[in-house]
């Protein structure tokens, strides 16, 4: 469990980092919580690591009326504990508290998790649920913003090119009256979820205005399902999630593995979706009441 030889670079600017990525074909090292283990197991043997930990200006969390924007070096734990980010969008903390364990959240970066694009990871699903985006600087493709819907291409595959560096992620704040929730079920506390569901439900005048969910571990990427049609207009104390559950189950493609069969995952997606939607509804109702 020792990595194969690799070159190590520690650029001092984003421009230099992107140049180095292009010149070496290396991998970005940020928190290292996924990359370092797979290198140690020699499942990956990048020729070079480009350590971005000394890059200035990427450790900031900005919260304004419409969004929470984080730099590429913001650790999960930093965002989880950020009060202004929580006040703007409680879903971030709710999901982040389920990301692995505190020791991993202390080092692991949220943007790193997005780029890793694991379909079992929480934060890609949150970004997708919120219609967020990733800010990218690339040697070939230049500076640009990639919407979540275009960012997650496949399992462990993002839209980034090899000479791209993701520098920010932007989580839009849902409109007023929107409740949110995150629920997941893992074999052990902190493990990758067998199924996880994030939900947003917006209430207007005591009735459901919109609802959508984002699921993990039931497809090749996070699966976002718009379920507004199944429940719009329902008064908040009389919502039946049955149709939403049917729509969600129709949209997912769960596979079985050693921890959960495909049928069980489908069942969990159904059960947890209703729980998540109800929790988001209750959250929205509480906000409306307040």
């Amino acid at each position: 469990m020792k990595p194969a030889p690799f070159d190590y670079h520690r650029p001092g600017s984003v421009a230099e980092a992107v140049e180095t990525l292009a010149a070496t074909g290396g991998k970005v090292l940020a928190g290292g919580q996924s990359l370092v283990p797979i290198m140690s197991m020699r499942l990956a043997a990048p020729v070079a690591l480009v350590d971005i930990n000394r890059l200035p200006g990427l450790s900031e969390i900005e919260v304004d009326g419409g969004r929470v924007r984080i730099g590429a070096l913001v650790r999960h734990r930093q965002l989880e504990q950020h009060e202004a980010a929580y006040a703007a969008n409680p879903l971030l903390r709710r999901a982040l508290s389920q990301v692995a364990h505190p020791t991993i959240r202390n080092r692991g970066t949220t943007v790193g998790s997005l780029v890793h694009a694991d379909p079992a990871a929480e934060m890609p699903a949150v970004l997708a649920l919120l219609d967020g985006s990733v800010g990218v600087v690339g040697k070939t493709a230049g500076e640009r913003t990639i919407a979540a819907a275009d960012f997650f291409v496949g399992p462990l595959e993002s839209a980034l090119q090899s000479d791209d560096l993701a520098v920010t992620a932007t989580f839009p704040t849902p409109p007023a009256g929107t409740g949110s929730s995150w629920i997941e079920l893992a074999r052990r506390h902190g493990d990758y979820a067998m199924v996880g569901v994030g939900a947003l439900v917006r209430l207007v005048d005591g009735a459901v205005e919109s609802a959508r969910v984002s699921l993990i571990s039931v497809g090749l990427t996070p699966v976002v399902v718009e379920v507004t049609e199944t429940c719009a207009g329902a008064p908040y104390d009389r919502v039946d999630w049955q149709a939403a559950q049917d729509a969600i189950v129709a949209a997912i493609e769960p596979e079985g593995d050693i921890h959960a069969s495909a049928q069980y995952r489908e069942h969990l997606a159904r059960v947890l979706s209703a729980r998540a939607l109800q929790q988001a509804l209750d959250d929205g109702a509480a906000k409306e009441a307040a």
């Binding site: 074999r187 052990r188 506390h189 902190g190 050693i258």
Partner: peptide, 27 residues
Amino acid sequence: YERMEYDASGQLVNASFMDFLMPYASE
């Protein structure tokens, strides 16, 4: 939690603490 998951070819497919589930203090 724990089991050794051998596939039919004799590969131990959960040969790491990520997939061989020893209980944590939380379990």
